[in-house]
Simulated assay, not measured.
Amino acid sequence: MAERLGSDGLAVVVHHSTGKDRAEETAESVVRAGGRAVVAGGDVADEVAMAEVFEVAEREYGGVDVVVHTAGVMRLAPVAQMDLATFDRVQRTNVRGTFVVDQLAARHVRRGGAIINFSTSVTRLQIPGYAAYAASKGAVEALTLVLARELGGRDITVNTVAPGPTATTLFLDGKSQEAVDQIASMNPMGRLGEPADVAEAVAFLAGPARWVNGQVIHVNGGAA
């Protein structure tokens, strides 16, 4: 997504929490392609750390026009078996983290800008084991819809992208190849999504989609 937005002419701040090396590689890729990119780190649920990320954007580029909030964690277990500390961690990153970033975005994004959150198509699939994750993303969707209305009159769009199974580290971690193939076969398109598929939707919402607001966009190949 950072690479796609960079290719569209946006100057990019690539955020990381623990993956600094990967963030730097991404920023370097944007720069090699002729774009502008810098890296900033911090815990998305920490309002001070995130304020510093927004400060980096304003210092380097003069302001903030688009915020794409993808940070999230996924821990799977049946409701009856999930440790509450694990549940709290999922909610802290996915719900509080989104609230912190959206709050700062509401304060800093300039007129004509876009705020793009991330949910999941799992919220519509009711898959056993995904309760904590799906619950956190249901909260993200609710936050998105309310914020879109709170920012009425400022020409700022607020939407959520809800991917289906996508070949990212978050999805693939801990899954056997057999499990991955089985999930891919369930999609009408016969494959997993690719990051580039999701980036297309993000680029649309970040740029030309000025009449798409307060929506949850399912990007899943028809999985649900």
Rank of each mutant, 00 (worst) to 15 (best):
G63H: 01
G153Q: 07
V100G: 00
A132I: 00
A209D: 09
R107T: 00
R154T: 09
G190D: 10
Q177G: 15
A209W: 02
V68S: 05
S119G: 05
D155I: 01
T168N: 03
D83Y: 05
V109T: 02
A184F: 12
E194D: 14
R89I: 10
R22H: 14
G113F: 06
A132H: 07
E178K: 14
V68W: 01
P208I: 11
V31I: 07
E25D: 07
F171V: 01
V64G: 02
V122H: 04
A131W: 00
G34Q: 03
S136M: 11
E60C: 01
T86P: 05
D8Y: 15
F54L: 04
L172E: 03
A162G: 02
A77T: 06
R210A: 06
R89N: 12
L104R: 07
E55M: 03
T18L: 14
R22F: 09
D83P: 03
G164T: 01
A139N: 08
M74W: 15
V64N: 01
A148K: 09
A201Y: 00
R36F: 06
V95L: 08
V95C: 02
G19N: 15
D88Q: 12
L205V: 04
D8F: 15
H108M: 06
T123D: 09
A49Y: 13
H218A: 14
V101A: 09
R107V: 00
L5P: 07
P78G: 10
A135H: 08
E60I: 01
E55Q: 06
V56H: 10
A179P: 08
H69N: 09
K175D: 10
I116A: 04
V122E: 10
V14T: 13
S7M: 15
T93A: 07
E200K: 12
A2F: 11
